[in-house]
Simulated assay, not measured.
Amino acid sequence: MLFLFTAATISAGAQNQKFGHIDLQALVQVMPERATAETEFNKFQSDLEEVLGEMQQNYQQKLTELEQLGTEASEVKRNAKITELQELQQRIQNYQMTAQQQLQQKQAELLTPVFDKAEQAIEEVAKEQGLLYVFDMGSKVVLYKSNQSIDILPMVKKKLGIQ
C-alpha cells in the first residue's frame, strides 16, 4: 500500500515537471542590441583593415623603389632597401596577428552584454512559467524534444519588447 502511494506521488510529481526550449541564436539575431554591436564591430574592423591597407601600400611602394634602383645602385643601398622591406613585411605580419586578437576581444566585449541580457530574460520567463530546465535548441545538443516542451522564444521576445 505504501509502495503504491509513493509510486503515485512520484508519478504525479514527474507530470508537473515542465521543460522549455529556445533557439538562443535566433533570439540574439532579433535583438536590437545585436545590430548595434554588429555596427560597432564592423566599424572597428574597417579601421583595422584601413591601417593594414596603408601598411601594404607602403610595402608595395618600397618594393617598387627597390625594383627601380637599377644596376647602378650600390650593394649597400640595395641591401638597405631589402632589409627595410623585410622589416616592413614583419611589421605587417605582426599587425595582422594583433588585429585578429583585437577583433576577437572586441567581438566578445560587444556581444557579452547582449547574451547576458538574453539569458536574463530567459531566466525570468523560465521562472514565471515554472520551468525546471530550458534547453538551447540552436546548439543541437538536445537530441529529442517532446511536444510538451514549451518554446519560450515568443515569451522572451515579448519580455524584451521585440516584435
Rank of each mutant, 00 (worst) to 15 (best):
K43W: 09
T6P: 09
S46K: 12
E75Q: 12
E50P: 11
Y144S: 05
I152V: 07
L66T: 07
P32D: 03
K43N: 14
E87T: 13
Q89A: 13
K18Y: 07
I22D: 00
K140G: 02
T39F: 07
E123D: 12
L69H: 07
S46Y: 10
G20K: 00
S146M: 05
I162H: 02
M31S: 04
G53V: 07
A7K: 13
N79P: 13
A8I: 15
N147Y: 14
K140S: 04
V114M: 03
V51T: 14
I162C: 02
K43Y: 11
F41Q: 05
Q129R: 14
Q96R: 11
D23L: 02
F115K: 12
A126T: 04
A7G: 09
T83Y: 12
G20C: 02
I122Y: 00
Q129W: 05
G13P: 11
L88F: 04
K157T: 03
Q90R: 15
Q56T: 08
V142T: 01
Q102R: 15
Q90G: 11
V76H: 07
Q107V: 06
V141Q: 09
E54H: 08
E84L: 08
V125D: 00
G20A: 03
K81F: 15
Q105K: 10
A80V: 10
R34S: 08
A118M: 05
M155C: 04
L52N: 05
D136K: 00
Q56W: 02
L131K: 02
I122V: 09
N58T: 13
S146H: 06
M137S: 13
Y144T: 08
Q68D: 13
E119T: 14
